[in-house]
Design a protein around this nucleic acid. Structure first.
Lengths: 330, 330
DNA sequence: ACGTAAAATGTAAACGATTACAAATAAAGT
DNA sequence: ACTTTATTTGTAATCGTTTACATTTTACGT
């Protein structure tokens, strides 16, 4: 295996020069540069990354901590981050935290060990609330979950606006009595709930909402109760993909039909939402865009560590499908 | 930041001893070991990974090259590999090759640079056919795609058996005239096609099959042609999730209903296959298991590089749903 | 032509661990 | 008690780069 000194010897230059050519760190006469590049190619030399990282203490690696890559939302983000990173000659280290604060801490430590140059992180509510960016030697960009503002760069969906858009749509379609179910584990759920109630208030409507653990079963159970109650809602708004699934199953189990008996709208344009009958009206998140933006924030902060903290809110897209079809005032 | 020499000094031992304690590489008297551990904790010392990797030339990192993590199949595998790896104190480097041989080569080189201790790889057909394991300094385990037998460790679905099982099922349900569509880009499609024709032959049936590029549009187009033809098949068997989607859309677009006008069965138990109406009969792949097994093969080969090459075929599971309901002999 | 500033190159000291090898200590056999 | 052997520990070389600093070369103004 060729080492840098072999290249230097063969090219008749010093190792410093070879290093300068390869990392573009210093000036080298064109003539020598070409000679070096030629020898590098001839010997098939590839620099030893461990040595380089040790000496320079730069790793060109970024960490990505999500709760579970199997979630299509994070899958898309992960893909965007990876695309951007490899394009920049950087590496990505992906970790699944399973919404577990212990694992979050563990992986943050691991990132420190790896000496990453930045981390993109989707924290649980607890971690988000008490996160101290200064405790880590690398910049952090939060995604998906809102964070105490001003504390750390972040890119999130405009959750309030998105929830309002869903309510606007339902109201426009003629629905009045609307129930909402929101995830209790993330700041996302809370923000969406705020938007939900804001919008209702604006229309002079009242509606009940419920905070639930983010599982299919929890939603299914709660919605079965609602459907069985005497004044069941005309429409249901749920705050994530799992709830959407739970809701769908509850409605089907109750032998009711969508949207005739009850309309259903939610978040996340997962592939299946378009395929079920009727298609589900959802807010699509710009997932790839979120990943790309997070990466951009990270790179920019690396350039200028002192620039003020930025929280970027991206707009969701309302995708209208059959599950919120216009009420025919029977 | 504490270095190993600081720990050594504070604990009153040599750096060698600290190293031995931390990496468990040599014998250390319990008394000293405790003292060292104590000092490590007190100083909050964490070994520098770059230095360790440089000196030992061991990285405890494995590479995972898949075509696209957004594919639920690979997402599950990725999750399994990551779970296993972190559990072992190893890291994972994930790359998306997009079925592009150039990127495959690029990332394999990158893995070499990273000095990974092994790679789990889902190659395109071309790469699989001419893959030379001895060209790389790390062991490779192929997944999903069959490879020239004997060349390299692999774990794949028993594709022939799976296709036969689908045909068995269709025949048992009363279908006779069966059409098949298979992916041309991977060995997987070819193997499934073999199983398909084997099974038909066994029943004394004939059936036509088609090799197509693995896209939704290709399947949709081809199937629309079939449905419009005078003697359209009673049942369709397609070899992957994308085709399933394309087929579903084609059938719906033609205004036909499943399974009354045409039955539909396929591969990959993606979440949505259970949610559409009717549910789709599929072969579920043990995706998590595939990832886990691949990781096991890799670890075992690290232990004993000389052990003979193994190709592990895992059985799929037939999941019967409405899309292949029994034909009522009208 | 000559001195000075700027640009290009080389020399050698890091970076922070691991690990041969040597040295010291403890255990065991006679 | 005294080798001999086994077990622990320490010393110092080493992994392969980058980079501060010294040195040489080139360019330039007068």
């Amino acid at each position: 295996m060729a080492r840098i000194k072999d290249v230097a010897l063969a090219a008749g230059v010093s190792t410093a020069t070879v290093s300068r050519v390869l990392s573009g760190s210093g000036p080298v006469r064109k003539e020598l540069r070409d000679k070096v590049l030629e020898t590098v190619a001839a010997l098939g030399y590839r620099p030893n990354l461990a040595a380089r990282r040790l000496r320079s203490s730069r790793t060109e690696t970024i960490g990505l901590i999500v709760s579970d890559v199997r979630n299509p939302f994070f899958t898309n983000i992960s893909r965007a981050v990876e695309d951007m990173a490899y394009q920049q000659g950087m590496r990505v280290m992906l970790c699944n935290s399973d919404e577990d604060p212990k694992k979050e801490a563990l992986y943050l430590g691991l990132m420190e060990d790896e000496n990453v140059c930045g981390v993109i992180f989707s924290p649980t509510l607890g971690t988000a609330r008490q996160f101290d960016a200064t405790a880590y030697p690398f910049p952090v960009v939060m995604i998906d979950r809102p964070v105490a503002v001003g504390a750390v760069d972040a890119v999130v969906l405009d959750n309030r606006a998105a929830a309002r858009a869903l309510v606007d749509h339902l109201v426009a379609q003629g629905y009045r009595h609307i129930g909402g179910i929101f995830g209790s584990a993330s700041g996302t759920g809370l923000a969406r709930r705020e938007g939900f109630h804001q919008a209702l208030q604006q229309y002079g409507l009242t509606g009940s909402s419920q905070l639930l653990a983010p599982t299919v079963a929890a939603a299914q159970q709660e919605i079965e109760r609602w459907l069985a109650s005497p004044n069941r809602p005309e429409a249901l708004l749920v705050s994530n993909g799992l709830f959407l699934l739970g809701a769908l199953q509850a409605v089907r189990a109750a032998g009711l039909s969508i949207p005739e008996d009850v309309a259903l709208v939610g978040f996340d344009d997962d592939p299946w939402t378009a395929l079920v009958e009727p298609g589900l009206t959802v807010i699509a998140q710009p997932t790839y865009e979120i990943g790309r933006t997070a990466m951009e924030l990270l790179l920019q902060r690396r350039e200028s560590p002192e620039r003020p903290v930025r929280v970027i809110e991206l707009a969701g897209t309302l995708i209208k499908r059959g599950s919120s079809r216009m009420l025919t005032t029977a």
